[in-house]
């Protein structure tokens, strides 16, 4: 099919996982009933080991080469994130910060999302008055948390997804690699 570009490499790596599990199981089974000391059974340890080594070396090599060439389609990913009401939690958190009990906030957001689904719009694309019909705790500053950039930047703590944290985590990860 001329229109297709198949992800053969990751699919093959995924497929090869089974044979490595199989080798582990065959080795566990190989040992389980052997009395002390050496028995000829042990000769069967080599082929599973060798194939495991070949398989993981090949998989690591192909993945290391592939990662060096990853080209990210930023617009497509942004669009996908934008179209899934992914900032709904941020609206709930915003309401809670403004004194709305969490369960009530959850319901408010549910109603806002339903309006979004019906009118095919993201929460950030609605007018302030439209959002305020669900809760008067919503003010003009709500749009700061409804953007994707605002949402990720707000998760700015150790282990969080904020760009600033990612930079710190990447530096730390590099330091660990050198150890």
């Amino acid at each position: 099919m001329p229109q297709k570009k198949n992800p053969d490499v990751p699919e093959l790596v995924r497929g090869k996982t089974g044979r490595v599990y199989g080798h582990m199981i065959s080795l566990l089974t190989l040992m389980k009933a052997q009395p002390l000391a050496y028995n000829k059974d042990n000769q069967e340890d080599k082929e599973p080991l060798f194939d495991t080594i070949d398989t993981i070396k090949g998989s690591l090599k192909v993945y290391a080469d592939m990662m060096a060439k990853v080209d990210v389609k930023k617009e497509s990913m942004y669009e996908a994130a934008f179209r899934g009401f992914s900032t709904a939690t941020d609206l709930a958190d915003y309401l809670v910060r403004n004194g709305v009990p969490f369960r009530d906030a959850h319901e408010v957001v549910g109603k806002a999302v339903r309006l979004g689904v019906e009118s095919r719009r993201d929460l950030s694309e609605m007018k302030l008055e439209e959002l305020q019909q669900f809760s008067d705790a919503i003010k003009e500053d709500v749009f700061e948390v409804l953007t994707l950039e605002g949402s990720v930047a707000a998760r700015n703590h150790l282990g969080g997804t904020a760009p600033q944290q990612v930079q710190t985590a990447a530096t730390e990860a590099k330091n660990r690699l050198l150890k």
């Binding site: 996908a80 992914s86 949402s151 997804t161």
Partner: peptide, 18 residues
């Protein structure tokens, strides 16, 4: 920015670096 998933559904935005 990319979508982060739970249960195969868009849940919250995350960064690709993360």
């Amino acid at each position: 920015i990319m979508p982060g998933f739970t249960h195969l559904q868009t849940a919250q935005p995350i960064t690709f670096g993360h």
